[in-house]
């Protein structure tokens, strides 16, 4: 599977994303600079990594969502190809309109870093097919603005359509309906606050993120 990781100024999980993808797929992903306007030829999977793109100035993910590479990512998503945004990547995907809702400041008003218990709500996506539905995972979170918000109609709709993919077992940030990760309507764009790339080998203290990348490889 040919992958690309997008690098913005302030991205800081780009290397972690690179290593996790390489570990699972056996191929090094291309590291794509935010000022490029095209994805490398033949790219299948795009990952928008975590970090503090543009220093979180203005609003998390807002400036990155207007960068030169974004039209290419939007066009790539429109073909039905997989796009994953983790943490700041999730914020960028909501800011760019690829995913519904928004990420607000954590309810506790503090940065929170912990290993978060998650439930797999939908194992029938190309990101989660290697998990069992209802599986309990432990995946690290580390964010200041992970409080997922959408209006009640939108929440009802995404829950009804199976777009809620992960829920927190213990809500760390005030997210509406404990939502930790969602997809778009077509199911090919996913955003999540937890970091699956930080749970892919035993040195991380757990490997619950591994199946996510394996699911993608399996569906490619």
């Amino acid at each position: 599977m040919k992958s690309a990781v997008i690098v913005f100024p302030g991205s800081n999980c780009d290397r972690d994303a690179h290593d996790a993808i390489e570990k699972v797929t056996g191929h090094k992903p291309a590291m794509v600079w935010h000022q490029d306007s095209d994805l490398p030829e033949g790219t299948e999977f795009v990952m928008v990594p975590g970090g503090f793109s543009y220093g979180d100035y203005l609003r998390c993910g807002s400036m990155a969502s207007r960068s030169a590479i974004m039209p290419a990512i939007v066009a790539h998503a429109a073909t039905g190809a997989p796009v994953l945004g983790v943490c700041n990547g999730f914020q960028i995907l909501t800011e760019s309109g690829l995913l519904p809702g928004a990420l607000m400041r954590n309810a506790g008003l503090k940065f929170v870093c912990e290993k978060a218990p998650l439930t797999v709500e939908n194992a029938n996506t190309q990101f989660t097919s290697r998990y069992e539905a209802g599986a309990q995972l432990l995946v690290p979170i580390a964010h200041h603005d992970g409080n997922y918000f959408a209006d009640p109609d939108t929440l009802d709709r995404i829950e009804g359509e199976g777009q809620v993919v992960f829920r927190y077992g213990r809500n760390p940030n005030g997210s509406a309906r404990d939502i930790a990760g969602i997809t778009n309507e077509q199911g090919n764009v996913m955003g999540m606050m937890p970091h699956p790339e930080r749970a892919v080998d035993m040195g991380h203290g757990g490997t619950d993120g591994l199946a996510l990348f394996e699911s993608l490889l399996g569906s490619a």
Partner: peptide, 19 residues
Amino acid sequence: IWKQYDRHVMADTTASSED
């Protein structure tokens, strides 16, 4: 205190304050 620090970025932390 340490819950406010990202202890895992760079994906090489094997033991931090929580461990």
